[in-house]
Write a protein that binds this DNA or RNA. Structure first.
Lengths: 385, 385
DNA sequence: AATCAATACTTGACGAAGGAAATTATTGAG
DNA sequence: CTCAATAATTTCCTTCGTCAAGTATTGATT
């Protein structure tokens, strides 16, 4: 955080993170929240104000008997620094510039001819230049870039071990992206990045445990337990898509059968809709259209898929009991077809109080993934020395 | 830990815990392990030695070019203090006295006429007296009692909110047990207690994440993620028994169908074995016997049950990716009938590297649950001010 | 207007915790 | 006997955060 120091006092990081996520908040409230003395908060906040990351808001009105000194809550100086986030998919780069509150300021995207590493990196460099040198003039106040990639990613080394969609093996993405862009780069798995974003700035704020489920080509899940992102001892975690919910279900590409993804993944839905409608050339969009027009057989496909997703979510709720769960993803562009079935499938299988877990089901704006990537670079700023 | 102080330096707790779980270990190794300076370890260890909790072992032999000063590893003084652990079931109290290494020194049990709270507490008092005043003379060196109860328990207040098996509602168990026994009482859910025991003293030692699955009347699961026991925001966690693995499976008492417990719980097995064998009066033991004699239909029942348990375990592995999983419980008295099917069911459904998660499948000695309760009181000592 | 209670924040002295590095302890090898 | 290697201790110092006293600012009460 401080260019000079290489270790930051825990309280400073704690205060910064708390202000970032809990919005404007008084020092006294911070002290309570973080279990610190108010003096410690004052001291921790000072360098953050001096560096321009925080600012004091105007004193707030208060009433009651003996109102006391008005509080001057601490708030993020959103415009103090900007962050680029880019989601890399096999056929597209989606990029955004965010402020310190993770609000998107500009966004842009580029179609890719192929997922060849060199090509992607060249395009990435151009996209970043477009974003930073376009209107807004963010270049001088931007030092960090976050990249979100699907697959097996090591955020510590910035290495992409294996990304099936991109067909990348052991790509030193951080190193190469830093060379091209000149920014400090953080690399993270896309679902994890989105989970962090939702935990810090979205509906997961304040939750000690939290789950994000993404519905699309695959069904993924990011998990926060004990305030920390779950990574899995063997590198596997959040594989909600490969929980088996039907012993006699359709075969899954993973080798098992009856996986959530084999029932509710985009491919699976298309396949089932084709056989249900008798039209072998049906696309996902066609299926959505048929269902919306009331085609009973195709509606049934979406119902089964929603139920399967609900079953996966119930497994998460029964096992780790998150404070809340957000369901989203590209697949939810047609979320009206899924939602009631997801809820019903979840409710039927949630055990006891697990059924109380609030479920948010909603589609994401398309740059949300890129915003997730930017959030990861904000997190890097906060954690960094 | 220190009767005088009400807050203990983090390093002291960390050193104590590490010696407790990683056995005899040198100060230098501790420093590496805990990311402390060796000086800090020396300082943290001294009060623990003075209080009699730790001791230095004889210097160890070492070889090699320039062998250096021999290490004097720190070890737990197991006999410095003793802990009572009691597992409370509807028809029995199982009690043990453990030393600081959680080794069982004496055990005893009492049949209960009923689960009436007053009766249970009276019996508990007598059981504790028997344990402490019997051979060994543990009374003077025992200050703590841990109680393990199934159901919804609040370890902070020592309140049993609801225990279905005992039919208890809102019982202030800690308070009442402290009055009767004169010991400092800790109350915990039975599966969680066992999980802590296995994490601190069993196969989970050193694992940053870990799962314990118990097979019996119900199928339960304790989860450690990020070194901490998962409790669930709504009080539900580890409900592996109510993960649905078969949409067309048998109805479960929870209201859903195809739950792991509805296929592999003791009741479910008896029910299926009765219909498979055509003997409506069959007991669980009869079923085991039939299966061991090679009754194909009954074997199939155990196979399906094992597969269901494996499916539940795979869900845990896919979602949270623990470093290792232990499967145990009374139900595994017949574990030879389950084991291969549990493994096969797990392997088939584990996604990618999740299949690498080591699985230990073994029955538990019957006092293990009580030992878990004692472990909780050891944990209370370590954490306490 | 003066005072008071209530609340927010600041300040400075203090103490506890842990790091750095020099020091002591103890061994085997040359 | 010296040296290299390793373990543990000690001393000194920095840092962090608490504590308690003090300052700031308000509305209510007299």
């Amino acid at each position: 955080m401080f260019p000079e120091a290489d270790a930051v006092a825990p309280a400073v990081t704690a205060v910064f993170t708390a202000v970032l996520t809990e919005g404007p908040i008084t020092r006294v409230a911070l002290a309570r929240r973080l279990d610190l003395s108010s003096g410690a908060v004052t001291k921790a906040a000072r360098p953050l104000i001096d560096l321009g990351y925080l600012e004091e808001m105007a004193a707030t009105e208060r009433t009651g008997p003996g109102a006391g000194r008005p509080a001057s809550p601490l708030a993020i100086r959103a415009g103090s620094e900007f962050f680029v986030g880019v989601k890399i998919t096999a056929d597209e780069l989606i990029g955004v510039v965010c402020d310190l509150r993770a609000e998107v300021r500009v966004s842009a995207h580029r179609r890719l001819a192929g997922a060849d590493v060199d090509q992607v990196l060249t395009q990435l460099g151009e996209l970043v230049d477009d974003l930073l040198d376009g209107p807004g003039g963010y270049r001088p106040r931007t030092r960090r870039l976050g990249l979100a990639v699907s697959g097996d990613v090591d955020p510590v080394t910035g290495l992409v071990r294996y990304s099936p969609f991109l067909r990348w093996h052991d790509v030193a993405l951080r190193e190469r992206a830093e060379k091209i862009t000149g920014l400090a780069v953080t690399v993270e798995n896309d679902v994890k990045a989105l989970t962090i974003a939702e935990h810090w700035f979205g509906e997961g704020v304040g939750a000690e445990s939290f789950a994000l489920v993404t519905v699309g080509a695959g069904i993924g899940c990011g998990l926060v337990v004990g305030g920390r992102l779950v990574s899995g001892a063997h590198g596997v975690a959040g594989e909600i898509g490969h929980i088996g919910i039907d012993v006699d279900g359709p075969a899954c590409h993973c080798g098992s059968r009856g996986c959530v993804e084999a029932i509710a993944g985009a491919d699976a839905i298309v396949r089932q809709a084709r056989s249900a409608s008798g039209r072998p050339d049906l696309t996902f969009e066609d299926a959505v259209e048929l269902a919306r027009r009331g085609d009973v057989a195709v509606c049934e496909v979406f119902a089964r898929a929603g139920d399967a997703i609900g079953a996966g979510i119930a497994a998460v709720a029964n096992l780790v009991g998150p404070a809340r769960i957000v369901v989203s993803g590209e697949g939810l562009a047609a979320y009206d077809l899924f939602e009631p079935h997801i809820r019903a499938g979840f409710q039927r299988r949630a055990f006891g109080a697990a059924a109380d877990c609030p479920l948010s089901i909603r589609p994401l704006p398309f740059e949300e993934w890129a915003r997730g990537a930017a959030t990861v670079s904000i997190k890097a700023l906060v954690a960094a020395g």
